[in-house]
Design a protein around this nucleic acid. Sequence first.
DNA 1: TAAATACAGTATCATTTGTTACATTCTTTA
DNA 2: TAAAGAATGTAACAAATGATACTGTATTTA
Lengths: 216, 216
Amino acid sequence: MATNKSLNKSRFVRQFHKIFEPKLIQEIVEKGVLKRYGKGEILLDIGDNMTHIPLIIKGLVKVLREDQNEDEMLLYFLEKGDTCAISFINCINLSKSIFRASVEEETECLMLPVNLIEDWLIKYKSWRIFIIDSYHNRLLELGEAIRSLAFLNLDDRLIDYLKKQVELKHSEKLSITHQEIANDLHTSRVVISRLLKTLEHDGKIKLGRNKIDVLI
Amino acid sequence: MATNKSLNKSRFVRQFHKIFEPKLIQEIVEKGVLKRYGKGEILLDIGDNMTHIPLIIKGLVKVLREDQNEDEMLLYFLEKGDTCAISFINCINLSKSIFRASVEEETECLMLPVNLIEDWLIKYKSWRIFIIDSYHNRLLELGEAIRSLAFLNLDDRLIDYLKKQVELKHSEKLSITHQEIANDLHTSRVVISRLLKTLEHDGKIKLGRNKIDVLI
DNA sequence: TAAATACAGTATCATTTGTTACATTCTTTA
DNA sequence: TAAAGAATGTAACAAATGATACTGTATTTA
């Protein structure tokens, strides 16, 4: 197990040695705690008091915006190399913040104690760049989510969604149900079935039970 | 004029002396350049190459998301004490980023050279907190924009919009046209007129030419 | 002051999206 | 293997929003 863990930390080193200074890498390896999450686990929930920030080295995490009435809306995905900057927010803004992160594919993270995050801002230029870039990327992705909601009809949002899924899952053959899509896009299953059927008629996808072949 | 400028810088000192360390205050006063923007001026446009970041000490700035087809959508407002973190993004991500900031009420900023922003992250704890908080607040506001778009009907979005305007303009009597509201909410003037009329019938507002009295 | 322009009110119709209901087929479980 | 459950297809209708067209009235400009 110890071997296994250090093996996984060496995965981290391979991934990050081009962005982080050697000393920072060393600190992260020393002080970060490796953690695994299985599909469906909640990585971040509303009102969580974060003591650690996850640095993702493998897997796929879905970040959602929630409402009071159990409504939810997909915001973006996090992959290896990403950190969950939004983590902080739920503790800072206990009352209102309503972001949730759930694991979409088995995920490995290095959990970094929050107090170090700030230390490293002082000590390492590469960390400053990493953190600021991370915020920028999240802002851009939320900007994209807003563009999609504000300017596109549901059929185009659906196409964008499918293309994004293909990219994230590295496959044109998606294992997904209409209900799951409906949840992510915050609409009803019936509406999604209807639109998917139209896309199939147009030759853009091929439908099966629990699967969609994306042809575009 | 010089007197005027230092007077305005002292406004800055009053506003920030509780959040920033004295040394940081001094650096900002020394190195920041005071700038005024009139209503309607563009503080930040797509593809701008930012050499300075604005720190707002007076006024009101509107931040929009734009589309190719001149469509736009209100994201949030910036007030005194805010900085325009999103500024960076348009230069980093030249191709896609499509945020715009335009001045809603005459605004004064201290323009801070970008190279100092990072220096200060190293030197001043209060600056680290300020910058990180700033990103968090923007993320929260985008989260709110998404909630509004995804979960609310237009009539409720309109009510939220009017309430927010009352708060920002410090008055229940708004000087605004239906067309302007329609632009901000990315819909048509006719739709807004229709919904406003309903709100008036319900006694929630009172309509006049170029003005709306908000009674709730 | 007449003409042009901006703002608002309203009716009508189209489109998009949401809702309900029910049938069919495949898969899992008792 | 029968029964239950999950996933999908589809029709019919409702509601929300968008689009067009035309009105009247206030304001600005020539």
